[in-house]
């Protein structure tokens, strides 16, 4: 097994792209080879840290309002859409989102 191929296998395992049998074999290989297990753990920890770091990137209501207003002023030069939220258009920040971490 080449080093490059081993790396690809590790990434496929991390991405959950190995079929069940191959994933079982891979876990067995990890148990027998601490270097593989260490590589998997360090990459998984990095991805966890990446997710944790960027999990707070949701728009604030003010940001959402500004961006939406800017778009709609151009979409509707009369500005009616911006200032008439009870009209035909739904305002995207009007209802809280279930996965909004700020709630």
């Amino acid at each position: 097994m080449t080093n490059e191929f081993a790396k690809k296998l590790i990434d496929l395992y991390l991405d959950d792209h190995l079929d069940v049998d191959l994933a079982t074999e891979f876990r067995e290989a990890m148990r027998n080879d601490p270097a593989i297990a260490e590589e998997v753990d360090s990459l998984r920890d990095t991805r966890t840290a990446l997710f944790a770091t960027y999990s707070r990137d949701a728009m604030t209501n003010d940001e959402n309002r500004r961006v939406y207003g800017r778009i709609m002023r151009n979409a509707d030069p009369s500005g009616i859409a911006t200032f008439n939220p009870a009209g035909q258009l739904e305002i995207p920040w009007s209802e809280p989102k279930a996965n909004d971490h700020r709630l």
Binding site: Y68, I71, M72, A75, D76, A81, Q88, L89, E90, P92
Partner: peptide, 8 residues
């Protein structure tokens, strides 16, 4: 062009 609001 108002459809862009929904796409947003």
């Amino acid at each position: 062009s108002s459809a862009v609001g929904k796409l947003y």
